[in-house]
Design a protein around this nucleic acid. Sequence first.
DNA 1: TATTCGTGGCC
DNA 2: TGGCCAAGAAT
Length: 376
Amino acid sequence: MPAADPADLLVWYDRHRRRLPWRAMPGERADPYRVWLSEIMLQQTTVQAVKPYFERFLTRFPDVESLAVAPQDAVMQAWAGLGYYSRARNLHACAQVVARDHGGRFPADETALRALPGIGAYTAAAIAAIAFGIPAAAVDGNVERVVSRLIALEEPLPAAKPHIREVTQAMVPQARSGDFAQAMMDLGATICTPRRPACALCPWMVACVARREGLQESFPRKAKKAPRQIRYGAAFVAERADGAILLRTRPSSGLLGGMAEVPGSDWRADYPLSQAILDAPCEARWRRMPGIVRHVFTHFPLELTVFHARLDRQAGAPEGMRFTGADELADEALPSVMRKVLAHALPQFGAPADKGGGKREPASRKRSGKKDAVEK
DNA sequence: TATTCGTGGCC
DNA sequence: TGGCCAAGAAT
């Protein structure tokens, strides 16, 4: 059996590489700031989702310095909707460390990169290889899939990671290590896909053990994951006479850390609706909105009952909360789940987030099959 | 080593 | 329709 030759992958890459906003032209040096920013955004996030955020970030924060001196609120607002918000906090912290301790330049060293906030083993290797040409092995989910198929690795993930890393490191070429890293990811994203891989188009088809046995779709082996339990809660949309909405900021760590939200209850496995009125942020004529808001986080699904109340113009915000004008809601760091809540309570707020979900039709909502809201 | 941490798209 | 998946990191 022929071994997988990195040169064959690079030949394939030169012909089929994806053109992405953060990539340099062939033969040109990639900008470390762009590489870093894109790598952080791409952690567990699809290319399609990242593209508009990447462009917006570059416009608002053209370089490390501008990001370092920006208020944290501005960074969280620009990140709102992308998810995994600790990335945004670490991104900001990392920019400040680079500005203060490294003269505004990313270190051209894998170990030094690894020490920066938000940069783990994969991202350090990716930046080292792509931005600085260091022969580092950037092992992400794509590479794990490609390599585990290539050698038909029976050991399940994540235990197999060290082994996969060794095999990958041994293949990294001294020249073009950045292209090799990106080629591996392009191969995983376009050919060696999780389902129905296009083996006939793969430069490593002949070398691939899993393919030879017709078992490519069964790799990588994976340990089974823990079951998720649904949680319930209440959310309160207080609308002042001038249209302003009562908001607060979540604690800086943990779920949706540092993001804005409407006041609400804890999210628990058991939440009797009779409890809701006790969790309201203030006294008012709370009205329960028909239906519920559903949202799915990585480790649990959530169902929120939404309450709405109108407050008069003089109403003051309770301790630790604030009113935000209707026309300023878009400037708040509201995560998607809160945009759903606002859209549910305020017809004028429109569709949640900025995605292609399109218009909701409250009147024609079906009884079942709704992801975001169902009657109850 | 195992959890925690978002979101949207896909079949 | 629900589970899986996407350029992982921090704890």
